[in-house]
Design a protein around this nucleic acid. Structure first.
Lengths: 299, 299
DNA sequence: ATTGATCGATAGGGTTTATCTATCAAAATG
DNA sequence: CATTTTGATAGATAAACCCTATCGATCAAT
């Protein structure tokens, strides 16, 4: 029964019987049969199929909601019993927005010191993907914006404020300034994240709010790529202050990180976990760690 | 998997492998194997067995907690999907304390008018049993005291106040009074519910608080039995005013129901349902009905 | 139109799992 | 000490599960 519900969850993620089956480690006929069995036991169609997967029926969506809950609780149960016997162990699956990746360490390092048996999987995802994967039980928690776009039903622990700085070579235009305005930044060619990232949308909105039409010369979904370009001193970018500091970009003598004012924008970044009570022991422990660490980060 | 969790729940109710098996509609070896399988899958013993069932281990108690939740959610899911297709249907399992039995009708009648497909099973139980059975998913909701002894994690909807009256023959001692005190009642031989009932404990406390040692000539766990004795006019009892009215005891000319004062005691009785969110559609509908009916009952 | 690829359903068969009856050994009961 | 109660175990049978192979429908590209 619970396996079948997992089939259904996989199907909602993949929207494809074959791939869902593969994700569950069974063959496609097995998954098809499982779904069909659920449908028969409920006496209702759950999936609208044409010659392929189309969508879930209204009943299917309700069952999905319950399935997420039941499957999640079942995992929590297993984890909790295991923790009772062997202490906190297992793998925490996290996802973070690219600009927060460098901050994950502030959470994982003290956590790991406290719970040495716990392992991590950490993925770089957009803020939207993080929320979806949280819903689908694909990750246990995420690091993302708390205050910009709607979050849905999650537990959120604020960790720090993202403030923006222009990253530019000392000998480039604006390179000698103590602070710059968004209007000035909007006139410089920039390299930024791709538009599916919330950070890019935030920065682009700030730039456009000045009335300008910014020139985004280069975009990427990888901070490493942006970082490597900026390091050459020949590219300018806008980065969260804390991220630039973590990457050591502030200490070179060819580069400067200049506060951007007018307006002095800031967005809160924090840990998000499913708003389920109780959480899995691992997730609960991570949230506890976040609450412990937060006071040392918030400025 | 979920079946096995049901085995475990049955075992926690019955504390006996054979009876638990019977309750689940399987044979004892099947249930034993199911429990054993759970233990193997968790890698932990869940039940302390000697030559018979002794108790659950710490891990077993945790698993039980989760099992209640998971099994409950699974039932809710089935019920909800069924309700989506066929409207609200199924069987509501209720329990009420004996003094509230006559009041159940004020809830079931309008409920039934609204949802004709719903059937009822209504049991007479002590307030303690009601709470236990609520926890164990044996009943969907109960009617019991809300304000006297601790309730635990439940959703409560106050329905009415229980006030106490002396039920006595007109030609018996105290039979001619407009009101009597608890001290006076304590001197008369009484027939009351058995001491496992909260109503009896409440009344007995009120009587003893006067300093007297009341003479409880006859006790029973059945209101019908008390009722039939009181009807003869030869026995006195203490009954909730509303109950006496419902039973038509106030209209005979050999009997009188006399308000008991000093102190004018009252206790709130209401509907209790598991504090789980969301509830099963049936339970949710019953709670809604209770909230609807309550204003017409509370004086 | 024809072909090739994709997708999900179906058929058939082998393996595993579930559950039953019957029985046993250990404790508890009297 | 005999009897009953309780849960575990053995063995047989039925059910369920899940695989491989294949089919029919659909869609895209020639």
């Amino acid at each position: 029964m619970i396996d079948k519900l997992e089939f259904l969850l996989a199907l909602s993620r993949e929207r494809h019987f074959g791939r869902a089956a593969e994700a569950c480690g069974v063959t496609q006929p097995t998954l098809s049969a499982g779904v069909k069995q659920l449908e028969e036991s409920f006496g209702v169609l759950l999936v609208n199929r044409g010659s392929r997967f189309q969508s879930f029926t209204a009943e299917g969506e309700r069952v999905l909601d319950w399935a997420r809950r039941i499957v999640g609780d079942t995992r929590s149960m297993r984890q909790e019993v295991h923790a009772l016997k062997h202490g906190l162990a297992g793998r925490l699956r996290l996802a973070a927005i690219p600009t927060a990746l460098a901050m994950v360490e502030t959470l994982t390092t003290p956590f790991r010191a406290r719970h040495p048996e716990v392992q991590f999987t950490i993925l770089s995802r957009t803020s939207i993907e993080i929320l979806t994967q949280l819903d689908n039980l694909e990750i246990d928690a995420g690091l993302t914006y708390l205050d910009n776009e709607p979050l849905g039903r999650v537990t959120a622990v604020p960790l720090y404020s993202e403030r923006y700085r222009l990253l530019v070579a000392t000998d480039a235009p604006l390179g000698d300034r103590e602070s710059v305005t968004w209007a000035e930044v909007a006139k410089v060619p920039l390299c930024l994240l791709t538009p599916d990232m919330q950070n890019r949308r935030i920065i682009e909105r700030l730039l456009r709010d000045t009335g300008a039409d910014p020139d985004i010369t280069l975009e990427s979904d990888s901070m490493i790529l942006l970082y490597s370009h900026v390091r050459t001193g020949r590219w300018a970018s806008v980065m969260p202050a804390r991220l630039a500091a973590t990457l050591g970009l502030t200490d070179t003598n060819i580069l400067r990180t200049i506060p951007i004012v007018e307006p002095e924008a800031s967005h809160t970044i924090g840990l998000v976990a499913p708003a389920r009570e109780p959480m899995t022991p691992l997730t609960a422990a991570l949230v506890a760690e976040a609450r412990r660490v937060a006071p040392m980060l918030i400025d």
